[in-house]
Amino acid sequence: MTVTTEVAPAPRRSSRRGASFRDAGPPVALIVIFGVFAALSPQFRSFGNVQNIVDSAAVLAVVTCGITFVLMMGSIDLSAAGVMGASALTVSLLVANNRNGNDFGFFGILAAVLLGCAFGCLSGLALVLLKVPSFMATLGVSAVGLGVATLMFAGVQPNISDAALKGWAVERFLGFSYLTWIAVACILLGWLIQRYTRLGRYAYAIGGAEEVLTLSGVQVRPYKVAVFALAGAFYGLGGVMVTSQLGAGLVQAGNGYDFSAITAAVVGGTLLTGGRGGVLHSAVGVLLVMVLTNGLVQVGVSPYWQGGVEGVIVVAAVAAAVIPQRRRNQVVK
């Protein structure tokens, strides 16, 4: 039986080859899927639709950027929906709106991002201090965020009238909306953090071998909290961006983004077990998910299936990712 014997570590070269295949796979899949849909639907290959896909990917890209850091550590984050709801309500109540006389403009946005950061901190602290597994801690924090958002919503929808924030979704620069450029900036920032800061490097290391890191004298706990806080800040910004799109603060602003972001990151090649992947991988994953959902609608599949398609591809992607380690992974919870 496979389980009774400890399998010797696979030869190094084969794991290398697996890694390069994993890195090349998602971009190739993206091109293939894009090609298939372009062949099937003339509407899909129009420039307007490509613009549309990229613009609608903006919020998901920012959220995925955040979740990627958490996944790199081998943790999981289900709090995006709640954090985004809370930050959406915060920003819509702090910039010019129809509910109160506030008009803090940029500082309102900053406050919403910081609120997201605080929620992320909360998840991280629950993880390292209370030792609550991250999927439970973030499930709880998501509920708290939704509750806070509901309290702020108070039955009356806050419509924003802040011209600058509204303009994010409408005004264009070089053919793409400001939101898209913000997302590009976020991906760049995320990549820099991942590549050049201690936080990013340690996030990788924690996912790869936390024990080794601890034994070599690194205090991993502050970094874990910091990673969750960073992710929270990205969700906070995502909530602000949704508010700009909708022109109003809604409790459900982040509905479904948590799952879509996990799907995008996993499809992009970030492993749920941690230690592999990255922001650029995730960016490809986001485009893959968006092209797939947009393309399916264009060829006439009901938009209700969108969640189902994501569900199928996340299960398939995770299953494909564990195949190389099938024999090593004895216990899967």
């Binding site: 996990i262 299960v315 995770v318």
Partner: peptide, 11 residues
């Protein structure tokens, strides 16, 4: 498929 249960059920 050896996928963590929370991912299977989330999907």
């Amino acid at each position: 498929l050896r996928i963590p249960s929370f991912i299977v059920t989330l999907g």
